[in-house]
Design a protein around this nucleic acid. Structure first.
Length: 312
RNA sequence: UCCGCGAUAGCUCAAUGGUAGAGCAAGAAGCUGUUAACUUCGAGGUUCUAGGUUCGAGUCCUAGUCGCGGAG
């Protein structure tokens, strides 16, 4: 498919593929971003040409801009890199969001200018908060200047998220990889792919795993309502001899029971986090592989229906 | 046998004589471009027993039971 062809151009991969225990390598994406949402940090000062922030390690004043971001990403050597952008707040009004978007546009062009390596594909980032007009402008702008496009931003709800994706996608050229930054949960992945997105990056599978929520497929009770997870710490799994997701081919499901995972979490054994993380990564990776296959066979809508609207 | 100290939520402990609380455990929920192991919530009690003083006792008095320490 278009995505696969695109990626074959880039050979230096650094991620192990959990689906086959790292036998094949996955392309890597890096990005750098300023984040002023975290309360505990001394707030970062966003200026027109970059961001001034304070190191959480030693309190030192640091300066970050497009040039620095791209230099770091070139040094890391990922296959796909991301332009430097301003991360808006969903609470901002139209005018503030517009100012932020102008900054993102300028920084995007600066990022392209700062790029020296030719073997890394750079994503531009669409912003504009919840404002349809700003999103459409940003989508057209990003598509015009970048060979790969991504949608960023913090979303107040799934409705807003899907609405914004739908608004942006028509502005993207067919052959350009489209990445949805920071999304998602399984439902969001299905809905976003339906609307034309290709790539995702998200902390949910790994963070959920560390917090004890493990992915299960529809045949084992995974539903839109439970985000396709269950809590391994729940008492009812104390003596459950089943694997996490019966039928799952991952190393953890092949070798360990829910009861054992329950025990590891209850006793605070970090091995529990490791096994849970392995399962969740395998699960989401395998799901995406299945989706890709279904798209190739023209049966994506059936697969989506099996997951999001299963027959009772 | 005597002296002292103690007994309050599953555990460890709070509570000038005035509505018995906390931490942990146990139970559940949340987590979307990551400061790894987080955050939130509800539930949980005949205050060892039996009397007494008091308007009112976890708290003061008496006796007992159990535990810890000391003396003999």
């Amino acid at each position: 498919d278009a995505t696969g062809k695109r990626l074959n151009k880039f050979s230096k991969s650094v991620f192990l593929n959990p689906a086959d225990m790292g036998a094949t390598l996955l392309p890597a994406v890096t990005k750098t971003t300023e984040d002023k949402q975290k309360k505990k940090l001394k707030s970062a000062l966003v200026q027109d040409d970059g961001v001034c922030f304070f190191s959480h390690l030693n309190g030192n004043k640091e300066w970050f801009d497009s040039e620095k971001s791209i230099a770091i990403q070139e040094k890391l050597g990922a296959d796909l890199i991301v332009a430097f952008d301003d991360h808006e707040s969903p609470l901002w009004d139209y005018e503030t969001t517009k100012l932020s978007l102008e900054r993102t546009c300028r920084w995007g062009l600066e990022s392209l200018k700062a790029q020296k390596r030719k073997d890394q594909l750079m994503y531009g980032i669409v912003h504009g908060g919840r404002f349809d007009e700003l999103r459409r402008f940003s989508a057209a702008f990003t598509n015009k200047y970048f060979d790969a496009v991504s949608i960023g931003g913090a979303y107040t709800s799934k409705d807003v998220l899907f609405q914004m994706v739908s608004a942006c996608v028509p502005y993207f050229d067919e052959e350009k990889p489209r990445h949805l930054l920071g999304i998602g949960e399984i439902e969001d992945v299905f809905e976003s792919i339906s609307r034309g997105m290709d790539f995702f990056d998200c902390v949910a599978p790994t963070r959920r795993a560390r917090h004890g929520s493990l992915f299960i497929s529809p045949k084992n009770g995974g539903r839109r309502e439970n985000s396709f997870v269950f809590h391994i710490t729940n008492q009812r799994f104390q003596t459950d001899p089943e694997p996490i997701d019966p039928g799952c081919a991952c190393h953890v499901c092949q070798n360990f029971t829910r009861a054992y995972l329950h025990h590891l979490f209850k006793t605070n054994e970090l091995l529990g986090h490791q096994l849970a993380t392995h399962h969740n990564l395998f699960f989401i990776t395998k799901l995406i592989a299945n989706i890709r296959e279904a798209i190739g066979e023209g049966s994506f809508h059936l697969l989506k229906n099996d997951w999001l609207s299963p027959k009772k």
